[in-house]
């Protein structure tokens, strides 16, 4: 039996992971939302507690599975489950949060072992004209970590933006020097 082919969308609460998956999924995405009872409630009424799931059917009939992780750290036990065997990672960062670069660092750290075996692309959401860092600052921040992940401003509601992120991830994977053992057998 072939392993599943999956891309994992992760990132901060409210960054747009659920929306991004819904933008490109062939079927209505499955969401495991619950009422937000903590600080998240100030951002949105519900939040993902286990995972989001969408899929795209490939030309040969295989499915590309799109998983969204819960944003809150208390659900991080789900991260490892979802990350295992992922082809690559789309990290969405809400640029309006107080410390988006620290947020990004957290996800790069937590998913680091899997990203090292695959690739990641960073989508910065909620506008480039807020007081958050610009692309140059994101680039410098990532470079200081001796990494070279592509970073782009992204509107998760726009399917073409999400597709561009995924397409970029594929290009990064193609020339990645990683061993690719995180990728599934096909």
């Amino acid at each position: 039996m072939s392993a599943e082919i999956k891309i994992v969308f992760t990132g901060t609460v409210g960054a747009g992971k659920t929306t991004a998956i819904a933008s490109v999924s062939d079927r209505p995405p499955v969401a495991t939302d619950a009422l937000a009872t903590d600080d998240t409630g100030a951002l949105k009424p519900t939040t993902t507690v286990a995972l989001d799931y969408g899929e795209m059917r490939l030309p040969d009939g295989d499915k590309l599975r799109l998983y969204g992780t819960p944003g809150q750290h208390r659900f991080r036990f789900m991260w490892e489950i979802l990350a295992k065997g992922a082809l690559g990672f789309v990290i969405l960062v809400d640029n309006t949060r107080p410390s988006p670069l620290e947020d990004l660092a957290g996800y790069l750290d937590n998913f680091g072992p899997w990203i090292e075996r695959s690739a990641a692309v960073v989508g910065v959401t909620h506008g480039e004209y807020c007081r958050g860092p610009d692309l140059e600052q994101y680039h410098e921040f990532i470079s200081r970590r001796e990494a070279a992940h592509p970073v782009m401003f992204t509107d998760p509601r726009q399917p073409r933006h999400v597709i561009t992120l995924m397409d970029t991830l594929l290009a990064a994977l193609e020339f990645s020097t990683a061993s690719a053992d995180g990728a599934p057998e096909t």
Binding site: P59, L87, A180
Partner: peptide, 23 residues
């Protein structure tokens, strides 16, 4: 040029299929 990876060929095929679907 980086060394060729052992699993690169199978991954290239997979990436091509996904790219075809995306684009």
């Amino acid at each position: 040029p980086p060394p060729e990876q052992p699993s690169a060929a199978s991954r290239e095929g997979l990436l091509a299929r996904i790219r075809m679907r995306l684009l």
